[in-house]
């Protein structure tokens, strides 16, 4: 499959010396939904801004549809639509004129039929003559999407599409994104909601402190790092883990009221049966057992933690 967006060693250092991107490389495939996942300040928006032309990268290169975003910026940018994080819209403009303006700005000839269809798809058509200031927050976000799609781009960037959006609107947004994927648009979205990346994305890229920690298929990422935890509630609290059980990945929680056992679901042996047998042998009585899949949140926290530790060791 061809790469729609090719990012090679992109760096961004601001004048004050702050390095927002530390050599990010990433290929985004045509037609996929890629989620850039990371905490606030990780460099997600900077990366998007560098691709879209809002920020000039200080190193590396970016190609969109084979066009260099700096040297062939006209061809590259004509293929891109950007939905910003903030609801930034001209308040006195009508929905229709706002969409027309964006289409013209991106160098596309007027096409009222296309815009009409677009607004209908986004349930905005009956609001087309309203001033933007009269619309609700959810509607405004739709207008931003309509503006970004007004010139029929091949690549769509959604920067935190559901930040500050209520649950219902979030589901709405997910549906819109799913419908957009059907039209063949390549979609890159940023989020710090893991749940969101999991629900929408084909692949997930984890970004932290200006570095891309990994990029993987959503399912594979979940499976590879998807460890499970078993929580064993005890009748009698334990002061320490019995010596016979030191070989198992166990830890005590709730002042000795519970034992937590971590294991890999994909390993040949989970060791559960032997571990429980050993517990019984040691005279520990079990009140309850429950298991849980580690969420992407845990994975993410784990990854960042790992990296920080590695850094600490190196230092």
């Amino acid at each position: 499959m061809t790469a729609m967006v090719q990012i090679d060693g992109v760096e961004k250092t601001y004048k004050g010396g702050f390095q927002a991107l530390k050599g990010v490389s990433l290929d985004i495939r045509e037609g996929e939904i890629l989620a850039l996942l990371g905490p606030n300040g990780a460099g997600k928006t900077t990366l998007i801004s560098a691709i879209c032309g809002i920020t000039m990268p200080t190193g590396g290169s970016i190609h969109v549809g084979g066009h260099d975003v700096v040297r062939a910026f006209r061809k590259a940018r004509a293929m891109i639509g950007l939905v910003p994080q903030e609801l930034t819209l001209e308040p006195f403009e009508t929905v229709w004129n706002a969409a027309r303006f964006s289409r013209g700005l991106f160098g596309a000839a007027p096409d009222d039929a296309y815009l009409e269809d677009l607004l209908k798809r986004l349930s905005l058509f009956d609001k087309k003559d309203n001033q933007i200031q009269e619309l609700s927050g959810g509607m405004k976000r739709r207008v931003l999407i309509a503006k970004a799609l007004s010139h029929d781009p091949k690549v769509l960037f959604l920067d935190e599409p559901t930040a500050g959006v209520d649950v219902e609107l979030r589901r709405d947004m997910w549906e819109i994104v799913a419908a957009l994927k059907e039209t063949g648009v390549t979609i890159i979205l940023t989020t710090h909601y893991i749940e969101e990346a999991e629900a929408m994305a084909d692949r997930i890229g984890v970004i932290s402190k200006g570095e891309l920690l990994l990029v993987e298929e959503t399912d594979a990422l979940m499976a590879r790092l998807g460890r499970k935890e078993m929580r064993i509630s005890l009748n009698e609290p334990l002061g320490a883990i019995p010596a016979d059980l030191s070989d198992y990945d166990l830890r005590l929680e709730d002042e000795g009221q519970a034992l937590i056992y971590s294991y890999d679901t994909r390993a040949e042996r989970t060791g559960i049966a032997r571990m429980i047998a050993a517990l019984t042998e040691a005279g520990v009585t079990i009140a309850d057992v429950e298991t849980s899949q580690s969420s992407l949140e845990d994975i993410f926290v784990g990854l960042v933690h790992q990296r920080d530790n590695a850094e600490g060791d190196a230092a």
Partner: peptide, 18 residues
């Protein structure tokens, strides 16, 4: 100044315009 103030300048910057 107005697009700078309300933030809509992003669109000008990301558009295929010099």
């Amino acid at each position: 100044y107005f697009p700078k103030f309300i933030g809509t300048i992003y669109e000008l910057l990301s558009a295929p315009v010099s």
